[in-house]
């Protein structure tokens, strides 16, 4: 474990807590894409298949349970909670996200580190996580009103990925033959997707104006 990875995990944890806090306290999911949350739930489901078979550490297990629990409860809140579901704007959340999953699955079948079910599922989760934010970014462009919590949520998600890239650089230089192109390429692509959002987030923060994404 290194400081970059710990910072990344804590930022990731903060992002899901911010989202849960928003949905649980103000009972609203306005501006939140259910499709992105469903994709994240699938990412954790397919990535943590070895949750009970491959023990890494207490920290690892607890964090996996938190991410699984939080992502599924967010999906439940938006789909099922009698108050929250009313604030879900499905007409704006139109990205065909299941359409995104097939290329990730096919790619995982052809490009992976070991052709076993677990490894293919894990690689699928890496590719899926890279593009899971797309429905949310598309929805933000559409609704254009980004409330603070949603903006912070996306900012934290992007920061978590940026910390992970620093973690990979650190591990590359400190551990013998630590090379994982698949994770690195997918991770860089994922972080770049946030790049555009980061730019406008910082502009709004610097000029102290409300965050607006260009149409």
């Amino acid at each position: 474990m290194n400081i970059f990875r710990l910072a990344g995990d804590m930022t990731h944890l903060a992002s899901v807590l911010v989202l849960l806090l928003k949905i649980h306290t103000i009972k609203s999911c306005a501006g939140i894409s259910l499709k992105t949350q469903e994709l994240f739930a699938i990412v954790f489901l397919t990535r943590y298949l070895d949750l009970f078979t491959n023990f890494i550490s207490i920290y690892n297990t607890i964090m996996k349970l938190i991410f699984l629990g939080s992502s599924f409860s967010i999906v439940w809140y938006i789909r099922r909670h009698r108050v929250v579901r009313r604030s879900y704007d499905k007409d704006q959340d139109t990205f065909r996200h299941f359409f995104l999953m097939w290329p990730c699955l096919i790619l995982a079948i052809f490009i992976n580190e070991k052709f076993t079910l677990k490894e293919v599922m894990w690689t699928f989760s890496i590719y899926l996580e890279a593009i899971a934010i797309l429905p949310q970014l598309v929805m933000l462009q559409r609704t254009r009103n980004i409330d603070n919590l949603t903006g912070q949520y996306i900012f934290l998600l992007g920061a978590y990925r940026a910390f992970y890239i620093l973690n990979w650089i650190y591990r590359y230089f400190t551990e013998e033959h630590y090379v994982h192109w698949i994770t690195w390429v997918a991770g860089v692509i994922q972080t770049l997707l946030y790049g555009d959002f980061f730019y406008y987030y910082f502009q709004s923060w610097k000029n102290n104006v409300k965050l607006e994404l260009p149409a």
Binding site: R5, D9, H12, D50, N54, I56, S57, N60, M63, K64, F67, E113, K114, E119, W122, Y164, N167, E175, E176, H177, Y178, V179, H180, T183
Partner: peptide, 10 residues
């Protein structure tokens, strides 16, 4: 490198 060493990441 064994793929497992990456699996220690979340």
């Amino acid at each position: 490198s064994t793929p497992s060493d990456l699996k220690d990441e979340l």
